[in-house]
């Protein structure tokens, strides 16, 4: 699993800047709308899928995002990311340390892009 440094930088810059400002959206509406640069998300998502597979992915992400108090999706997503980092629930993809839920969203975007 090797992703180009330039591609990773673009993805991480995009994620770091834009994920906290994600538009309100239900996961079912399409995870591509949750990331600012779907091309970059696909790169990370493919890395996630290569490392962890896609089994039960949709249900896992939906369960995580649907849990907790009723909040707008951006806040809910932000809380999930913060909780992941606080609990050390992270994945390492090509050296990048990411919240599990943000990596899983990228994986869903990648699945969609690849027709999965």
């Amino acid at each position: 699993m090797t992703t180009g440094r330039r591609a990773c930088l673009r993805v991480l810059a995009g994620l770091a800047i834009a994920l906290p400002r994600i538009v309100a959206a239900r996961p079912a509406v399409g995870f591509a709308t949750l990331v600012p640069d779907s091309e970059s998300a696909v790169v990370i998502g493919r890395a996630y899928l290569a490392a962890y597979g896609s089994s039960d992915l949709w249900r896992q992400v939906s369960a995580v995002l649907d849990a907790g108090p009723e909040q707008a999706m951006p806040q809910r997503f932000h809380n999930c990311v913060v909780r992941d980092f606080a609990q050390g629930d992270v994945v390492t993809l090509d050296g990048w340390v990411l919240s599990r839920v943000e990596a899983q969203i990228c994986a869903l975007v990648a699945l969609a892009a690849d027709g999965g």
């Binding site: 990773c8 991480l12 994620l15 770091a16 906290p20 932000h78 990311v81 913060v82 992941d84 980092f85 606080a86 050390g88 992270v90 090509d94 050296g95 990048w96 340390v97 990411l98 919240s99």
Partner: peptide, 12 residues
């Protein structure tokens, strides 16, 4: 973990 938790950025 701390840069991520505080929303400061992501680390490789």
């Amino acid at each position: 973990l701390e840069f991520g938790r505080l929303g400061l950025g992501r680390v490789k």
